[in-house]
Amino acid sequence: MAKNIHSDQRYIIGLVNNDAVIINEIYKRCAAKVKSWITFNNGSEDDAADIFQEALMDVYRQAKYKSLELTCPIEPYILLICKRKWLNEIKKKSILPVTNSEEDLLHIGEDTFANADELENQEAQSKLFFRAFEKLGDRCREIIEWSMKGEAQEKVAESLGVTYGYLRKKKSECMASLIKLVQSYKTEE
Rank of each mutant, 00 (worst) to 15 (best):
S101H: 11
K92L: 06
S172L: 10
A2Y: 03
E75T: 15
Y11N: 01
E145N: 06
Q9H: 13
I51Y: 02
E154Y: 13
E103C: 04
Y185H: 13
S184H: 03
T71P: 09
L87C: 03
E110W: 08
I108G: 08
Y60G: 00
T39E: 06
E134V: 14
I38D: 00
S126F: 10
D8K: 01
L96G: 02
A49G: 02
L106C: 00
K93V: 05
K155V: 14
K33V: 08
L178P: 09
S159M: 06
S101A: 11
I23A: 03
M57S: 04
F129C: 03
K186E: 09
L119M: 07
R29P: 03
V59R: 01
K33P: 00
G165W: 07
R168D: 12
M1P: 07
E173T: 15
E69T: 03
I38K: 00
D8F: 08
K155E: 15
N100T: 05
C174I: 11
D104H: 00
Q53T: 14
T99F: 05
V59E: 02
K66R: 14
R131A: 14
P76R: 08
A157M: 08
I74Q: 10
D111T: 12
V16P: 00
I179R: 07
S172H: 07
A48Q: 11
S126N: 09
K83A: 07
E173L: 15
M175N: 05
D47N: 07
A49M: 05
V156D: 14
W37G: 06
K171T: 12
G165A: 06
Q62P: 09
Y27S: 01
I38Q: 00
N24P: 00
I13K: 02
N41R: 15
K93H: 10
V34E: 01
S172P: 06
K91E: 15
C82L: 08
N100D: 02
A55N: 04
S36G: 03
K33E: 00
